[in-house]
């Protein structure tokens, strides 16, 4: 019972790489939770979905703060250049992914 509860609490992350050969994974199947309709095919993952959880949260916070690095720095409790560096590194990563 306790084990089952623990399993429910585990946050499952979207795997981005093949565990066997490390190649990037694509979407093959999707289904509707409401009516069980399944869609099969090969779909590319959206670029933002290829970022880590932390990076995705940064993008969300950035949009929520209307793109203000100063507000971001204040809410994250870090200095302005630190936030700018995180953003610039993220831009570099997105350019590489694209």
């Amino acid at each position: 019972m306790k084990m089952k509860q623990m399993n429910n609490e585990i946050k499952r992350r979207l795997p981005l790489q093949c565990p066997a050969c490390d190649a990037p994974l694509r979407v093959g199947r999707m289904f509707c939770e409401q009516c069980d309709t399944e869609v099969c095919g090969t779909f590319e993952l959206p670029v933002l979905a290829k970022l880590t959880d932390k990076e995705q949260q940064f993008v969300i916070d950035f949009i929520k703060s209307s793109g203000s690095l100063k507000d971001m720095a204040k809410s994250m409790g870090v200095s302005y250049p630190t936030v700018r560096n995180i953003l610039d590194d993220l831009i570099d990563k997105l350019n590489k992914i694209e």
């Binding site: 409790g77 870090v78 200095s79 302005y80 250049p81 630190t82």
Partner: peptide, 10 residues
């Protein structure tokens, strides 16, 4: 310390 302090404050 510069992860937390920089710019005018520093």
């Amino acid at each position: 310390p510069f992860e937390r302090i920089a710019g005018l404050e520093a």
